[in-house]
Design a protein around this nucleic acid. Structure first.
Length: 368
DNA sequence: AATCCGGGGGC
DNA sequence: GCCCCAGGATT
C-alpha cells in the first residue's frame, strides 16, 4: 500500500504548477481584500466564467469597498440580477457595510467568518488570498482533489469528512505561499482534477495520488446521491399598459426581491386560466380576462423543475393592491426592467410574450 | 443533519 | 438528461 503524501510533498508540487498555470482572472490582477470578497461571494455555487462579467461591472461601478458599502441594497440586487442565489447580494452588501464600519476587512479567518455571508470556506479564502494568512479553504474543488489524492472514503459533506479535509488542506499550507496554495488547490480541481474527465497525465500530483494507480479516480469524492427535482406547474399573465407589464416583487425566499409578471403556482390538474384570474384578483386586486396561451417555458432550479404557461391578460380596471403575501410590491415595468433587473425566469417569461412600444410614465396601482 | 437557495456549462 | 460548480444560513 502506498503511503499518504506529506503536506510538504503536495505543496512543493502544487505551488510551482499554479504559478505556471494560473488562469488570468480579473481579481488576480489586483487581489485586494475588496476584490477577493466580491469574487468569493460571486463564485459561491457559481462557475467562474459566469461570475467574471459581474465582477467587472461591480468594480467599475463601485471601485472601492467604501463606495460599494454606500450603495443601496436595491442597486446591488439589480446589478446581481441573473447571477442566482440572490440572498448572496444582500449578504455581500451587509458584509461590506460591516467591514467598513470596523475599518476594513479583517485578516483573521475567525473575524471574517463573523461577517454576513462568510462561512468557513470564504473566510479561509479571503484570509489566504487577500492577506497571505495560511488558512485552509475547502470548497468543492479542494474536497475533490484531496479526496482523490488520499482516496478518502468518508462522505466529504459529513462532519467527520469536513474535519479530515480541513486538517489536510491546512497541512498543505505554509507561510509565504498561502495565496498560491489556496488558489492552486482550486485551480487544480477546476482545470485538471475535474469531476468527470480528470487529466491525470498533466497533474502535478500524479506521482503521489492514491486514486490514480487504483484506477478509481472518478469514484471520489464519495458524495451521496442527489434527490430528484420536483415538477412544479405555474401560470403567468402578461397584462400590458403603455408598453409595460404588471409585475410583482417577490418576498424573501426563492428569487427574493426580484420582479416578475403576475402569476401563481398551480396543481397538475388545475384549470390554468381560472387560477390566473384568481391570482390577479388576490395579488393585484384586478378582475382579469385571461386571453390566449402565448407559450410555455421550463426553468430548472436545484430542487424544482418549473413549467410556466404564459397567457395574455386584459383587465377592466385596477381596484388597488390587496396583496395575499405573494408579492411585496406591484409595478408596471418596461421590457428593460426599468432598472430593477430580471431574473432568468422572468426573462424567459417575457421572451415568449414580448413587450414593445408604448411610453413611460404610467402609474402603478397603489401598494399596501 | 437536513433543507433551502439559481443558473449554467460539460459531458 | 445528469452532474455539479470558489457555500452559507436556517431549522
Amino acid at each position: 500500500m502506498s503511503p499518504v503524501a506529506s503536506g510538504e510533498a503536495l505543496r512543493e508540487r502544487l505551488v510551482p504548477w499554479y504559478r505556471a498555470n494560473a488562469r488570468d482572472l480579473p481579481w488576480r490582477r489586483d487581489p485586494s481584500p475588496y476584490h477577493i470578497l466580491l469574487s468569493e461571494l460571486m463564485c459561491q455555487q457559481t462557475r467562474i466564467d459566469t461570475a467574471v462579467p459581474y465582477f467587472n461591472r461591480f468594480t467599475v461601478r463601485w471601485p472601492t469597498i467604501e463606495a460599494f458599502a454606500a450603495a443601496s441594497p436595491d442597486d446591488v440586487l439589480t446589478m446581481w440580477a441573473g447571477l442566482g442565489y440572490y440572498r448572496r447580494a444582500r449578504l455581500l452588501h451587509a458584509a461590506a457595510v460591516a467591514a467598513v464600519a470596523r475599518g476594513g476587512l479583517p485578516a483573521d479567518p475567525d473575524a471574517l467568518a463573523e461577517l454576513p455571508g462568510i462561512g468557513a470556506y470564504t473566510a479561509g479564502a479571503i484570509a489566504s488570498i487577500a492577506f497571505g494568512v495560511p488558512a485552509a479553504a475547502v470548497d468543492g474543488n479542494v474536497e475533490r482533489v484531496i479526496s482523490r489524492v488520499d482516496r478518502l472514503d468518508a462522505d466529504p459533506r459529513s462532519k467527520g469528512g469536513k474535519q479530515v479535509l480541513r486538517v489536510r488542506a491546512q497541512a498543505i499550507h505554509a507561510p509565504g505561499v498561502a495565496s498560491e496554495v489556496t488558489q492552486g488547490l482550486m485551480e487544480l480541481g477546476a482545470t485538471v482534477c475535474t469531476p468527470r474527465a480528470p487529466r491525470c497525465e498533466v497533474c502535478p500530483w500524479a506521482d503521489v495520488c492514491l486514486a490514480r494507480p487504483a484506477g478509481d479516480v472518478t469514484a471520489y469524492p464519495r458524495l451521496p446521491a442527489r434527490k430528484a427535482a420536483v415538477a412544479v406547474r405555474a401560470v403567468a399573465g402578461i397584462l400590458r399598459r403603455d408598453g409595460r407589464v404588471l409585475c410583482g416583487r417577490r418576498p424573501e425566499g426563492l428569487l427574493g426581491g426580484l420582479w416578475e409578471p403576475v402569476g401563481a403556482e398551480i396543481g397538475p390538474e388545475e384549470d390554468a386560466q381560472a387560477a390566473l384570474r384568481q391570482a390577479f384578483a388576490a395579488r393585484a386586486g384586478m378582475m382579469a380576462h385571461v386571453g390566449p396561451l402565448r407559450g410555455q417555458i421550463v426553468h430548472v432550479f436545484t430542487h424544482r423543475r418549473l413549467t410556466v404557461e404564459v397567457y395574455e391578460v386584459s383587465a377592466e380596471e385596477a381596484v388597488g393592491f390587496v396583496g395575499d403575501g405573494t408579492y411585496t410590491e406591484l409595478a408596471w415595468l418596461a421590457a428593460d426592467g426599468d432598472g430593477v433587473g430580471w431574473s432568468k425566469l422572468a426573462q424567459k417569461i417575457l421572451a415568449v410574450a414580448p413587450v414593445t412600444g408604448g411610453h413611460v410614465g404610467d402609474t402603478p396601482p397603489a401598494a399596501g
